[in-house]
């Protein structure tokens, strides 16, 4: 995770555009991922995208944006649900159960991290690592991670657990207000891979639990989701780029496959040096063309 305390202005700027769409969705808060595809999209599309694209042949991102919104809300709902289980286990002193729930719970968050980052302090509150913030302000998942794996006790973690659940619920509530536009999608996909590049691939994200591969996979899945949604527009604009990105996603997935273990992934500590390097380089090989998806926004 990376953040600044101030909300990144590019995201703020990007967010001004779509207030109308956002409010439409406030009560559609359960998983409707299957039907959101293209029902009522065409009507408000031109107004919505004109600013973002600033091009005569303005691409229509309405459908992609609505589908992404649905995806984000779905992930958020699951995130809150699983966080409730996880923090419940922490509070009940069930260390082994909490450890088992920790990484899978985080995956829902990691898939939509750029959205959380657009919501001010929520990302540091939920996902700050020990040296990311002033010690007095440290809270969230990684504080509990340290308690579970390093201190091996949940005593004294009750407040942190409660706070985390509240923050997760706040994220769920606030996510309704995030204005999503094509620019956010494009930069968000790259940011997800940057997250991997900056901390997960080096094993620095989950320094106590070594569950970095869960985050790694979730970030990549989050980026891939965006790519899939933008694929039709991208294919129109630059078919070769669309194909390259698809191939590189496949290559990275293939690289990750051997590290699956049961429902989850092996510990980062089990990775050999050359395996880490290969993952890192495959990730960069994907992120480089992915960063050119901005071409669909026009010049």
């Amino acid at each position: 995770m990376k953040f600044s305390y101030a909300v990144p202005a590019s995201l703020l700027a990007a967010s001004i555009l779509f207030t109308g769409c956002a409010s439409n969705n406030t009560n559609g808060n359960t998983a409707q991922s299957t039907n959101g595809a293209g029902t009522n999209t065409a009507t408000n599309a031109p107004a919505a995208t004109a600013d973002a694209a600033k091009t005569a042949e303005a691409a229509d991102f309405t459908s992609a944006i609505e589908q992404y919104r649905t995806f984000v809300i779905e992930q958020c709902d699951l995130f809150v649900k699983e966080t409730e289980k996880f923090t419940g286990a922490v509070k009940a002193g069930q260390i082994e159960e909490a450890k088992k729930l920790y990484a899978p719970t985080r995956m829902y968050y990691e898939r939509i991290e750029p959205i959380a980052e657009a919501l001010g302090d929520l990302d540091p509150h939920i996902d700050a690592r020990e040296n990311d913030v002033d010690p007095a302000e440290w809270r969230g998942f990684h504080k509990l991670e340290k308690a579970l794996w390093e201190d091996k006790t949940t005593a004294g973690s009750e407040e942190t657990a409660d706070q985390l659940l509240k923050d997760a619920q706040l994220l769920r509530a606030k996510v309704e207000t995030v204005e999503i536009d094509a620019n956010l999608l494009v930069t968000g996909a790259v940011e997800l891979l940057n997250e991997v590049s900056s901390s997960k691939v080096t094993g620095e994200e989950e320094r106590y639990s070594h569950t970095d591969l869960y985050d790694f996979v979730a970030n990549v899945e989050g980026a891939q989701k965006i790519y899939e949604l933008l694929k039709p527009e991208l294919a129109k604009k630059d078919a070769a780029l669309e194909q390259t990105i698809g191939e590189r996603f496949a290559a990275l997935q293939a690289e990750l496959a051997p590290f699956k273990s049961g429902d989850g992934y092996v510990s980062y500590q089990q990775l050999k040096e050359d395996e880490v390097r290969k993952l890192s380089q495959n990730l960069d090989a994907l992120a480089e063309p992915l960063s050119n998806m901005g071409t669909i926004l026009g010049v």
Binding site: T187, V190, N194, S197, S198, D284, A287, E288, L290, S291
Partner: peptide
């Protein structure tokens, strides 16, 4: 983080 920087847009 050179590789990350290299894939951020000019703006």
């Amino acid at each position: 983080r050179i590789e990350v920087w290299d894939r951020s847009s000019l703006s």
